[in-house]
Design a protein around this nucleic acid. Structure first.
Lengths: 344, 344
DNA sequence: CTTGGTGTTGTTACCGCTAACATAGCGCGG
DNA sequence: CCGCGCTATGTTAGCGGTAACAACACCAAG
C-alpha cells in the first residue's frame, strides 16, 4: 500500500490539485483558468495564486475531449527545404496568432503515400481546420478530406477542383504569361530548366502553361534540362553550362524556380555572357532572399505569404464575406521583369 | 424529438460505430486497430473491413487521455526564415519517422515571452518529449521545463547549464577558432558584421568568442556594423559597402552568418576588390544553399542536421549508451576555409 | 470427467476536463 | 417577511478511448 494518503510529488498535476490548494471546486478552477463564466475577483485571485505556485499546466487532451473543441489547425505541405513553404507558414502563423488557433505541420516530401499517412495522423487529432498544399490527392486522401467534417483549404494552386475551399494562383496561367512576355521581348530559341519531380503538380502545370504559351506563337522549346536534389544554386550553374554547351544558340532560359535561376545568372555573369542582350533569363517565385544578387532575375511572385494569410483567415472564419465554405480565392502573381529580360 | 434512433450520418464516427458494424465489442475493435493483444484472424478481418468501409479515423485525443501516452514531440525553435532551423527540423523528422513519434513545431521569433507561451501551450498537450533551441530561458520557462517530467533536449548550444540533455556546438569556441585562423593567415584589421538581436544568444557567444580570440593575440575589432530585418543577401552588400567606406583599411570581414557573408562576397567581386588577397571574408553556418557562388565563402559548419538527428535519438530513447537523461553531446564544427581566406 | 492451460472476447472503471444544470446566498420591492 | 432575480459556486454525467481483469470456449492431459 504505497498509494493512499501522500500524493506522489512527481505525478503531474490536475485540476483537483489546484482545487484542493485553493479550497474551491474543480469547476471553479476550470472557469478561472479559461476566463469563462462569472467568478468573483477574490476567488479568481486565490485560484490563480495556487495554480501559479504549483506550476499547474492544464491538460488540453482532457479539455479537448470534454469540450469537443480542439484549437489545432493541421497544415500539410510537401517540403521545408526551399523558402516557399516556410514563407507560407509564416503567413499562416501570423494570422492565427490572435485567434487561439495553433498550426501543426506535417511534411509529405511530395509523396502521395506520405501525404495519406500524415493526413490520417492529423485527422486523428480532430483539428478544427486543415490547410493542405495542392489539389491532387490519392483517392483515400480525398475521401478523408471530404468526410472530415471540418473546413479544408487547399493552397498554392487553383487549377482544379477543390474539396472545399482553395487559395492560390493559376500556375498554368503563370507559365503562359511568362511565355508571352518572353516572346514579346523578341526571344525565340527558348530553353527550359527544371526539376525531375513527377509529383510536383504546380511545377508541371507551370511547364504546361509555358509550352502552351509558346505553342500559341508557333514556337516550341528548343532544349530542356532537368535535375534532382543537391544545392539548387550550384545545380543552376551546372545545368546552364550543360544546356548552353549542347544548344549554343539558345537566347532564353526559363528556370522552374528562382534558386536555380540565380545559379544560372551567376554563371552567365561569370562567363561574360551578355544578359539580357544575347541571353535572357527568368525564374519563378520571387524569393526575397535573392534581392542582393548583382542583377535582378526576372521572376513571378507566387504570393506565398498572402496565400498563407488568406488560408488561415478562411479557417479562422475571418473572411469578410459571410461565405461558409467552398470559397475559391484566386491570387494574381505579377511579372517582375528585373534586369534579365530585354525591354521592348 | 429528432434524436433517438437514426444516428446522425454526419456525426464523426466512434469505436462504437465500428463495433456495431462488425458485431464485436469496442474493446476488440480497439485491439485490432492498434495491433495489440490477441485477436483471431477472422475477427481482425471483419473489423478492418468495417472500419475501412465506414472511413473510421481513431480519435487520438480520447486514446491519449485513456492511455496516458502521447506520440508527440514538441520542437521549439526561434525561426524558420533562414535555412538553419528547417535543416535541424529535417534531421529531427527523418529520425522520428520510424518511431511512431510525431514532431510538433512552435516558433518563438527569438522572443522570450513567446517562448514561454509556446512552451506552456506545448506542455498542455503532454508531449512525450521536448526539443528546444538554446540554453537561455526565462525563469518561468525554466521552471516549466524542470517540472515537466519528460525528456528535454536543448539544442544548438552547449555553452551553459542544460535542464536535462543538450546537443550542440560551442559557439564561443567556434568564434575563437575563426579568430585564430584569421590571425594565422596574417590579417590584422578585422571588422565584424552581424545582426542586432539581443536574444540570439548563439550569435552573441560566437561574437564573444571571436573577440576573445582576437584579444589573445593583442588585437581588437577595427570596426563593426549591424542590421536587422530585410533580405540578408542585400543587407550583406549594403553593410559591406558601408563599413569599407567608413574604415577603408580593413583587411578582413567576419560575418555572423553566411547569407550576409555571401552578399558581402558578391559586393567585393563586383567592386573588383581582391579577395582574399587585399580583403578576407568569412561567415558562419555552412549553408549548402550557397555552394553555387562564384567563390566559396570561408565558413564553419554548425552541424545542423546532425544536431536534429541526435536530439531526436535522445527523445526516442535510441542513444546507444544506456544513458537515461542529462546527456550533453558536443559536436565539433570544422572550419571550411573556402576561397576567401589567404592560404598560409 | 475433471482440471488447467491457452487463446479470444467482453466488462468495468477510469483518464482529466467541461457542458449543463442545480443550488446557495443575497439584496430588494411589495 | 416573502419570493423574485441576480450572481457565485457546486454536482453530475459524460467526451471516446484503453488498462486491467473477468469470462468464456476449447482441448489435452491426468
Amino acid at each position: 500500500m504505497t498509494k493512499p494518503p501522500l500524493p506522489d510529488p512527481r505525478r503531474t498535476l490536475t485540476l483537483r490539485d489546484v482545487s484542493e490548494a485553493s479550497g474551491v471546486s474543480e469547476m471553479t478552477v476550470s472557469r478561472v483558468l479559461r476566463n469563462r463564466g462569472d467568478v468573483s475577483d477574490a476567488t479568481r485571485e486565490k485560484v490563480l495564486l495556487a495554480a501559479r505556485a504549483l506550476g499547474y499546466v492544464p491538460n488540453k487532451i482532457a479539455g479537448a475531449l470534454a469540450s469537443q473543441r480542439v484549437n489545432l489547425v493541421g497544415v500539410i505541405i510537401p517540403s521545408m527545404s526551399n523558402m516557399v513553404f516556410p514563407e507560407v507558414m509564416m503567413g499562416i502563423s501570423d494570422t492565427l496568432e490572435d485567434t487561439g488557433l495553433q498550426p501543426v505541420v506535417g511534411i509529405t516530401n511530395y509523396s502521395p503515400e506520405r501525404e495519406e499517412s500524415v493526413l490520417y495522423e492529423m485527422l486523428s487529432w480532430r483539428p478544427s481546420g486543415l490547410i493542405i498544399a495542392g489539389l491532387e490527392h490519392s483517392p483515400a486522401a480525398s475521401a478523408m478530406l471530404e468526410s472530415a467534417g471540418i473546413p479544408i483549404v487547399e493552397i498554392m494552386d487553383i487549377d482544379g477542383e477543390p474539396v472545399d475551399s482553395a487559395v492560390g494562383i493559376s500556375h498554368r496561367r503563370a507559365g503562359r504569361q511568362m511565355a508571352e512576355a518572353i516572346i514579346a521581348a523578341g526571344y525565340r530559341r527558348i530553353g527550359f530548366l527544371g526539376t525531375k519531380m513527377p509529383d510536383d503538380h504546380r511545377a508541371r502545370k507551370r511547364f504546361e502553361g509555358f509550352r502552351d504559351g509558346l505553342a500559341r506563337a508557333g514556337l516550341d522549346l528548343a532544349d530542356e534540362e532537368y535535375y534532382a536534389g543537391g544545392s539548387a544554386l550550384l545545380k543552376g550553374r551546372e545545368m546552364t553550362e550543360t544546356i548552353l554547351k549542347r544548344t549554343p544558340d539558345l537566347d532564353f532560359l526559363y528556370y522552374s524556380n528562382d534558386m536555380i535561376g540565380a545559379g544560372g545568372l551567376l554563371y552567365c555573369l561569370a562567363s561574360g555572357i551578355d544578359v539580357p542582350g544575347r541571353l535572357g533569363l527568368a525564374g519563378f517565385n520571387g524569393v526575397e532572399l535573392l534581392d542582393g544578387l548583382p542583377r535582378k532575375l526576372a521572376t513571378m511572385d507566387a504570393c506565398r505569404r498572402e496565400i498563407g494569410i488568406r488560408a488561415a483567415e478562411i479557417i479562422a472564419g475571418k473572411r469578410p464575406s459571410g461565405v461558409i465554405g467552398g470559397e475559391v480565392l484566386e491570387l494574381f502573381p505579377k511579372l517582375q521583369p528585373g534586369d534579365t529580360i530585354r525591354k521592348v
